[in-house]
Simulated scan of single mutants.
Amino acid sequence: MEPLTEHRPVDSPVVYGFLRLSSASAARQAALRASLAEYCRTHELRLSGVFTDRHTTTDPASAAFTGLLDVLALPDVYGVLAPALSHLGPKPLAAERVRRIEAAGARLLPARRPRTACLSTSRRETGHGRPGSVRVLDAES
């Protein structure tokens, strides 16, 4: 009889982080990196590196993002982790970057989900749209 999966050494899925920090303090940068590492620890992911955009840009092909796309082409890369979707840039820029991440065959994992998405998801899945009642189904942060 074979041992259960939990008894076999299994590699954690590889992810790369992405931060957009144009004017963040060193303490804020360290805190965001630590939050990515903690997210990976609790979700059994392996954070292999973090790419950081340090300049405000509307160009989806910044140096940091281009580097991220390069590593997504490596074998066995699962996805991209960001503290929130806002780290990909303003909405039009973020939409283009999401498209490029998905085109590379990777998953985008926002550590903090938008609040409006949580409300609409919980109401849709539970079938209860009563005002003032919100049921939390997936609390990740």
Rank of each mutant, 00 (worst) to 15 (best):
P3R: 11
T5H: 07
E6I: 11
R8G: 08
R8M: 14
P13W: 03
V15Y: 01
Y16F: 14
G17W: 05
L21A: 08
S23H: 13
A26D: 13
A31G: 06
R33G: 07
A34M: 04
S35G: 08
L36A: 02
L36C: 09
L36I: 03
A37L: 03
E44F: 11
L45T: 00
L45M: 07
R46D: 04
R46S: 11
L47W: 03
S48M: 12
S48Y: 02
G49N: 00
F51R: 01
D53G: 07
R54L: 00
H55G: 09
T56G: 15
T56L: 15
T56S: 15
T56R: 15
T58W: 08
D59V: 06
D59N: 15
A61C: 10
G67C: 05
L68V: 06
L68K: 03
L72S: 04
D76T: 10
D76A: 13
D76G: 05
D76L: 12
D76C: 13
V77E: 03
G79F: 00
P83F: 01
A84S: 14
K91P: 15
K91Y: 06
P92G: 00
E96L: 08
R97T: 04
V98M: 12
R100T: 03
L109M: 07
P110R: 02
R113I: 12
R113M: 02
R115S: 14
R115V: 14
R115Q: 13
R115E: 08
A117G: 13
A117E: 13
C118L: 14
L119K: 05
T121W: 02
S122P: 01
E125W: 04
E125I: 11
T126R: 11
G129K: 00
G129H: 07
P131E: 10
S133H: 15
R135Y: 13
V136S: 09
